[in-house]
Design a binder for these strands. Structure first.
Lengths: 319, 319
DNA sequence: TTGTAGGCGTTATCAG
DNA sequence: CTGATAACGCCTACAA
């Protein structure tokens, strides 16, 4: 916790000389260099990042604002992004906004002095984008399809198409188990697009609400009557609920019902039948997010959206 | 991003007067108060926390150092702690050390200027404690049994005892599926203590290594030969692996084999048989952790260890 | 080759 | 009631 001043007085030189030694300027007398280094080795010196930040107007810290950490895939994104950032030498601040716009705005304000940039780990709504656009610092939204902000979007079409192409001829019907009745839900839209592109006629969308295990369990009740059905679920939790519901009713998976989730959560492999899923490359997302942010930190201005693919992973709940 | 100076000059008063208005000091002329407030409303003022921190020697930020976010229970702890901190008005920095002592030490240094306190969200080894004891800032280790540091410990005995008392008469044998061969593993020690206290004779410990799903799967092989066995697993993931292994071998759970995990991960409820588990109160842990930290921030010095209980939750994998 | 001085923005002491 | 002014620790332009 020693300061430059203390190092300097201890070594009997000026602060400026200590700095020169620290900067490895050649033009310092060797014996002074030795002296200063000895003092630093003795009493230690850790630069005060607050003071440095105040002066330099950058702190080497990136703020991450997340919605919540309830879904495993969000945690994986957070881990990957923070890992990527640390590798590039940035520190990380974390704020969890819990879907509350007030907290989000407070976090943005807090971070605009502390941080060199802000990463939003959340789905962007139009309302959100309005707040975000006022930010003067570099930022990236990590899962957004909106083209007027710096963002990395997740292309769900690719994975859904893969799954439908691989499986639709094996089942008579295809259903999408949606979590919200939002007509603009990206996964639902992608489902409709892919299913139509594949020429499937017998498809429908089931709204189960919530997007958690219980909503899947509930949804399974309305599914059971329709055998030979491929069920593409909003996420892996819903898929787990659907699967358990089917089990409880004595249904045969994957022969009579195929089950596919989203996100490749770890537990998809723990279930007594491992769950097929559509996965996004979290590492790719993290790399692109940080890349986009660094672009801006280095002064690049134009809006830019990068995209990551999704992939279908076939396991025991599909044929 | 306006500064006090700008506000002051815009309002035609001195910086000191702006401060007084901000502090709601009574002794400012009403028309000046109005003027200053108008300017602030117009051009906005967000205090620069770097400058404030430099001056006041406290930033209102708490650093959290976590090992990793691989286990759901760790994420829940992180969420709960950050929530508790934010409620008390603190900001949060997050660092993930990935079990690497070098990263950990770097984080500690980084945080010792930025943060008013540090929370370690990790199991404390003796080696770790050596580093931590050098810290001059307030700190708390969030899962430690070592008495010479500020810490909150998880009392695993209580939950294990509960489980054993509730179940041991229903099975002939009891096994503990351990993740490490470390003789000092807390869960193993607690298991031995509780099992002996309950007067159980036919118990053993199986080392499966890794502590993940696959190690549980592997462990199940050596279990199958011994029917009528209560299996207490290192954590829920191991339990899931054991359960799947038993299923694959056509074993009857819970009639012939009882399965109990640790941590109450969400997926324990998703498995086709919901998994019995021993849970710790994450909220309680978070509250006590933050409480202990605030104690120190307010100047309290003596070492203190708080403790949280664990509880047995019986589900479908036990009788 | 070395040192002085000023400013980043905030806060509080002290003097008008 | 109000306003200079100094200090927190760092960094660098500018002398000497």
């Amino acid at each position: 916790m020693a300061t430059l001043k203390e190092i300097a007085s201890e070594a009997g030189v000026s602060i400026r000389t200590v700095r020169r030694v620290l900067n490895e300027d050649a033009c310092v007398k060797p014996d002074k260099v030795k002296m200063v280094n000895k003092v630093i080795a003795d009493i230690g010196y850790v630069p005060n990042l607050l003071a440095r930040g105040l002066r330099n107007k950058n702190t080497g810290i990136i703020g991450i604002i997340a919605d919540n950490l309830d879904l495993e895939v969000h945690v994986k994104k957070l881990s990957a992004v923070q890992c990527e950032l640390r590798e590039k030498g940035y520190g990380v601040m974390l704020g969890i906004a819990s879907g509350n716009p007030d907290i989000e705005e407070k976090l943005v304000q807090e971070y605009s002095h502390f941080c060199d940039g802000i990463i939003f780990l959340l789905a962007s709504t139009d309302q959100r984008v309005k707040v975000i656009k006022k930010i003067t610092k570099p930022y990236v939204i990590s899962d957004s399809y909106i083209k007027t902000v710096h963002a990395v979007s997740v292309d769900r079409d690719s994975g859904i198409c893969e799954a439908i192409i691989a499986q639709h001829e094996k089942y008579r019907y295809i259903s999408f188990i949606a979590a919200t009745s939002n007509v603009n839900d990206r996964r639902k839209l992608a489902f409709e697009k892919c299913v139509q592109a594949a020429g499937v006629v017998d498809y429908n969308i089931i709204y189960c609400g919530g997007g958690d295990f219980n909503s899947g369990l509930l949804a399974s009740e309305s599914i059971i009557s329709k055998k030979d059905n491929l069920l593409i679920c909003y996420n892996d939790r819903v898929a787990a609920g659907v699967l358990k519901g089917l089990y409880a009713a004595g249904c045969n998976v994957p022969d009579d019902y195929g089950v596919i989730g989203f996100d490749n959560d770890d537990f998809t492999q723990y279930a007594c039948q491992s769950i097929s899923t559509i996965t996004q490359s979290v590492d790719d997302l993290a790399k692109k997010t940080v890349k986009l942010l660094e672009h801006q930190i280095k002064g690049y201005k134009p809006k830019k959206v990068l995209s990551v693919n999704t992939k279908f992973i076939s396991r025991e709940t599909t044929k």
